[in-house]
Amino acid sequence: MDEFDVLTQLRQDTPAMSARARAQGRLRLLGEIEGRRRESRWLPARRTMLAAAGVVILTVAILGYQVVGSPDGGSTAEASTVLQAAAAVAGVPAAVPRAEQFTYVEVVHVTSGGRQRVQEWRSVDGSRPGLIRSSGFLGSTSGAIAPYDPAAGLRTAPYAVLAKLPTDPAALARVLGEDPYVQDSVRYNNVSRDVGIWSLVRELVETAPPAQKAALFQAASTIKGITYVPTATDAAGRTGEAVGLDDPRLGNVQFLFDRDTHAFLGERILNHGSTTSIQFNDAIQQTGVADTAGSVPRR
């Protein structure tokens, strides 16, 4: 036997990095990145929150992870209908914000650690620094939002960039499929393009203009494997219905909608194979347009 062969076999059964260690390492790195930035700039709040929750968004595939079947067994047709209803409501035209204004989003995130309220102001045309304020169990912070970086994809895109996206669902799905975030998910996480798109849709719906928001829900409604969840409660305690998709990295990622108004309420992530074990939950409290970063629009 070759001496290198014997060595190659030694400790070959070393256990893989645990999800916990990976999430903690990532969180430590994000902390370093935040701290080192000359002007404090923030990642999109959702990513930071998911990292804090120990939810791994974008990591190398974990060997042995199996995509489990739908925990509810809900039908795809019903799921598709829920998303189309949401699209119909989302597509109602609203006042177009001016270039110098800011889109405002307030979201409450709940993880096993506690609650965090996050407010974000993003420059409509991307020309001004945005602002993020965050308070809760992770402490209170505020700082500038990282500016839009086309190379990083659409996740940090301002309203004006999202307004240029196709409003035809199929064309939009193609653009989303080519986004670097989705590409990286497919490439490094071994997830399907659809799973990547599902995550990206969540990142964009809060800021997207009505026509694009409608197209996002429509594009999502054609994704294979989505399931209907009859009852789901968001982080603010509002109960509605939901549509879920299994993401091998995270669990069953569900979008929650009001049963009557079909408004998008928020998101929750259930552990694989469970209908009760929630690892992440959020609720959109308010969206709107503000004249300055830091001023909360009137409801």
Binding site: M17, G25, L29, L30, I33, L58, A146, D149
Partner: peptide
């Protein structure tokens, strides 16, 4: 220029 991009390096190689 966009420090947060460095997280991608972690995502790619942390396991190995």
């Amino acid at each position: 220029t966009h420090a947060e991009r460095f997280a991608e390096v972690y995502d790619r190689h942390a396991e190995a």
